[in-house]
Design a protein around this nucleic acid. Structure first.
Length: 222
DNA sequence: AACGCTTACAACCGCATCACG
DNA sequence: TCGTGATGCGGTTGTAAGCGT
């Protein structure tokens, strides 16, 4: 409680950024809660992590979203719903926060989607839900505690990916998607998911795969 | 110039999940 | 198996900047 109160909040200063970057340069990422203990930075671990992930990391791309990025985000959102981290993992250089903000401030307006209280007004079968975050649950698949897509597909995680479990889970997902809509299921073929531990890597086949699905007609009817 | 409103986005919060002892 | 701390995610809030009057 008292610990929490002495942490600073609000916008970061240049000095704070420098302290955080110096720490990461020496110790690397992770152990975010240690930063306030070993440096003069009066920020909680969560705040440090967020600042690094969303702003300071050299992999973060700044500036306006390109038309291609917009297009990709719209398509991925149609497929995945509000799975921002998953979407961001397929848009090189963009963070989940950036994608989420961009969607809420630009793309949802562009598409004429009203943000209803508690949910985005997208009629996606894969819309995220706090209580039903797993793809298996959303798709009413048999629950398997070892095949949590939110973990295996976590683009920002440094944890090792478990290819076998991931592949099994995706195969289930593809089967379910195929039942619902064969065209969507096709977009989730194995080539969509590179089974490597770098899920942030740019997949050259993604756009092609997404192009195979006739989203445009659906969007125009929104 | 001063104000009020809107927009964009950085940051926070609560919760879920994971990792480890 | 359980408890606890660390991490990640998505929703929400706060606020600076821009814009119109």
């Amino acid at each position: 409680m008292e610990e929490k109160n002495h942490y600073k909040r609000g916008f970061w200063t240049v000095e704070e950024d420098k302290i955080l970057m110096d720490y990461i340069r020496v110790h690397g990422k992770g152990k975010w809660n240690r930063i306030a203990k070993v440096t003069d930075l009066k920020r909680c671990g969560k705040s440090c992590r967020l600042r690094w992930m969303n702003y300071l990391s050299p992999t973060v791309k700044r500036g306006e979203f390109s038309v291609e990025e917009d297009d990709l985000i719209i398509r991925l959102h149609n497929l995945l719903g509000n799975r921002w981290s998953l979407i961001a993992g397929r848009v090189p250089g963009r963070t989940d926060n950036q994608v989420k903000n961009h969607w809420n401030t630009h793309l949802s307006k562009k598409l004429g989607i009203r943000k209803e209280k508690g949910k985005l007004g997208v009629s996606s079968s894969l819309s995220s839900s706090k209580k039903s975050n797993r793809v298996e649950e959303v798709l009413k698949l048999p629950t398997d505690s070892n095949s949590d897509l939110s973990t295996t597909c976590d683009s920002n995680s440094t944890k090792p990916v478990q290819p076998k479990l991931m592949k099994a889970s995706i195969q289930n997902t593809v089967e379910a998607l195929n039942k619902q809509d064969p065209a969507v299921g096709e977009c989730f073929e194995s080539s969509f998911w590179p089974f490597t531990d770098d899920l942030n890597s740019n997949s050259p086949t993604l756009t092609e795969l997404l192009d195979g699905y006739p989203f445009d007609a659906a969007w125009h009817t929104l």
